[in-house]
Design a protein around this nucleic acid. Structure first.
Ligand SMILES: [Mn+2]
Ligand SMILES: [Mn+2]
Ligand SMILES: [Zn+2]
Ligand SMILES: [Zn+2]
Lengths: 155, 155
DNA sequence: ATTGGGAATGAAAACCATTACCATTAGGAG
DNA sequence: CTCCTAATGGTAATGGTTTTCATTCCCAAT
C-alpha cells in the first residue's frame, strides 16, 4: 500500500498524472491534510492547517484544488447545514470504508456510520438500475443522510 | 378535502393556529405560490411570483416565512447544487406523494421519482431503528438523492 | 541541465444568497 | 374598537465562494 503510511509516491499520484494534472506543493499539502484529518473539514480549516507548514498558501488555491479533487472523485463535498461546505477524502481503492452520515440538527455534530451498508447497497443497486432504465439517467453517485437529535440535544 | 381545490379555509390554517402563529397575507401568498408551483422554487422565484399579485412583499419576508414553514414541517428545503436553496410544499396528510430526487450534474435538471419508495421505506425504517439504538440518536428526517447525467447530458 | 510555454498560484476585489437591524404596520384576543 | 405585540419590508451588512490578473513554476521537449 504505497504512500499509505510510509515512503513511495502516494497512491493519488497516478490518478493525477493520468488526468494530465500537475503535481504541485499546494495540491500535495491539501491532500495530506485531508488524509490525516480526523473529521470533515471546511475550506478554511484546510487553509489554516496547510498554512501552518506552508505559509504561502492562498485560500483561493484551497477552493480551486478542492473543486478539482471533487471533480476527480478523490474527495467528497458535503453540506451538513452549517453554511459552509465540508470535505472528506474519498479513500482510494484500498481503504474502502464507505459510510453515511448522521447529522444532529441541534448541535451540528456529525456521526459516520457504516451500519446497514450492505442492505443499503442492495437496495441502491436495484433502485439505480430501475431509475437508469426508466429515465435513461446515468447515475454516478448518491447521497444519504439522516437528521435528528443526538443524545445531549434530546434533553 | 377543504381548501384543496375549492372554497373553505386551506388545510394549513389549523396548523398555523395551533402553533400560535398569525395568518397574514404574505404567508398565505407564499403558501399559495408553493402550492401551485410545478417545480422546486428558489426564494427569489417565490418572491417574484408573489410580487406579481402583491407588490408590497419583501424578500426578507420570503426568507423568514420559508424558514418558519420548514420548521413547521409544511415545506422541505433542498440543495441541488445550484448555489441557492430550493423549496417544495410537503403536501399535507392527504396528498401523500412522498418522493426523492434525481439530480443531473450536467444541466441541473431535477426529476422527482416515486419508484422503489416502499422498499426504501422498509430499509430506512430498519436503519433508523438500528441507528437510534446504537447511537441513541432520535432521527426525525432523512435525505436521499441520486446524482448523474440525464439523457441529453450523456452525449 | 536548460528552457519555453501553458498550467497553477495568490492577493485583492467582486459576487451574491442570506441575515441583521430597526422603524412601521397590522393580526386578532379581549 | 383598542391595544399589544408579532410580523413586515427597506436597507445595510455578512461571509462563504468565485473572479480577475499579474506572477510563478511544473515538466516535456530540447
Ligand atoms: Mn464522513
Ligand atoms: Mn421534488
Ligand atoms: Zn446534538
Ligand atoms: Zn442534464
Amino acid at each position: 500500500m504505497p504512500g499509505r503510511n510510509g515512503k513511495g509516491p502516494p497512491w493519488w499520484h497516478g490518478k493525477f498524472r493520468s488526468c494530465g494534472y500537475r503535481l504541485t506543493i499546494p495540491r500535495e499539502m491539501i491532500l495530506d491534510v485531508l488524509n490525516k484529518a480526523a473529521k470533515h473539514l471546511s475550506a478554511e480549516e484546510i487553509y489554516l492547517a496547510v498554512q501552518k507548514v506552508y505559509s504561502a498558501i492562498g485560500l483561493t488555491t484551497i477552493y480551486r484544488t478542492l473543486e478539482l479533487l471533487v471533480q476527480m472523485g478523490l474527495v467528497f463535498k458535503f453540506d451538513f447545514g452549517d453554511k459552509r461546505s465540508r470535505y472528506e477524502l474519498a479513500d482510494g481503492p484500498k481503504g474502502i470504508r464507505h459510510h453515511y452520515h448522521l447529522v444532529c440538527t441541534g448541535c451540528g455534530r456529525v456521526i459516520d456510520y457504516t451500519d446497514f451498508i450492505d442492505e443499503a447497497k442492495e437496495l441502491l443497486l436495484q433502485t439505480q438500475k430501475g431509475l437508469t432504465k426508466k429515465y435513461n439517467f446515468k447515475i454516478t453517485n448518491h447521497l444519504i443522510q439522516f437528521y435528528g437529535l443526538c443524545e445531549k440535544c434530546q434533553k
